[in-house]
Simulated scan of single mutants.
Amino acid sequence: MSNKCLVCGKKLGFFTPKVKTKDGKYLCAYHANHFFGTNDDISTIPTDLANGLRTMTSQQIIHEITEYNVAEEKKQKEREDKLNGYRHMDLSTIASKIPGINLKKNEYAYYAYDQEINWLEERSKTSRINYGGLTGTIHIAKGLNYRLGSIKTDIKHETYLKQIFNGMVVLTNKRIILINQQGVKAYPFTRLLSTIPYDDGVVLCSESGKKVFPKFQE
């Protein structure tokens, strides 16, 4: 017998991480952590979080989730309205310097995003796959053997994204800058050839063909 998550309706097995609400409903680990915890882990529910959710009814949980979604939608709309406003604004009127960061001559900041961004860059990896067919060995003399058979080596090329930095993002008229306590990562617009937008970030393509992916944290 399985129960269902009151948010997504997914069937929850006996060993599936979940928490039982005060009125006997169930909440899966993903939505428990996503809406009430600090991450989207699906493997477990922290004890203090589970204990708190057990004191709430399903209606209370749905109410809290609804308020959370409304607040997130409001934040997203405010960000979109702000960005849309920038498209029709004379950005020089809001340009400024940033304390603690050495901007270039005639470089000014236009926009700062108050959440951390993950900076991923495209990397390539080459691996060799060795294959050997049927083999045999002929003993010729002491310490001397002759091996019969075939060995084939295949080369496999793989492209992947590697996270190399994360921090708060600042947009200037010359660069995209990420800042954290360890340092600064910058991407000059002179390298930028095209962009590919996604729901969770944007891919920046340079003339050399290299791609980087500033990704919003979930």
Rank of each mutant, 00 (worst) to 15 (best):
N69F: 06
E73F: 08
A71S: 10
Q60F: 08
E67H: 13
I61C: 01
Y68W: 15
Y68I: 02
K75W: 04
R54N: 04
G52M: 03
E72N: 10
K77R: 14
Q60W: 05
V70I: 15
A50E: 14
L53A: 08
Y68A: 03
N51I: 03
L53R: 13
K77S: 13
A71Q: 07
T55F: 14
Q59N: 09
K75E: 13
A50M: 11
K74T: 14
T66M: 02
T57D: 04
E72S: 11
T66A: 11
N51E: 07
N51L: 10
T66L: 04
L53D: 09
Q59M: 10
K75A: 09
I65P: 05
E64T: 12
T55R: 15
T57Q: 04
I61V: 07
M56L: 09
E67W: 03
Y68M: 06
Q60T: 03
N69K: 13
I62Q: 11
M56I: 03
T66H: 09
K74P: 02
I61W: 00
N69Q: 14
A50R: 08
T66K: 07
A50S: 15
G52F: 05
K74L: 15
M56V: 03
D48K: 14
Q76P: 01
Q59F: 13
R54K: 11
A71F: 05
Q60C: 08
E72W: 07
Q60S: 13
E67Y: 04
R54W: 02
E67M: 12
H63Y: 12
E73C: 10
T66C: 01
T55K: 14
S58L: 00
T66E: 12
A50H: 04
E78H: 03
S58Y: 05
T66W: 05
T57P: 04
T57L: 09
T57N: 05
T57S: 15
Q76M: 10
N51F: 09
M56T: 04
L53I: 09
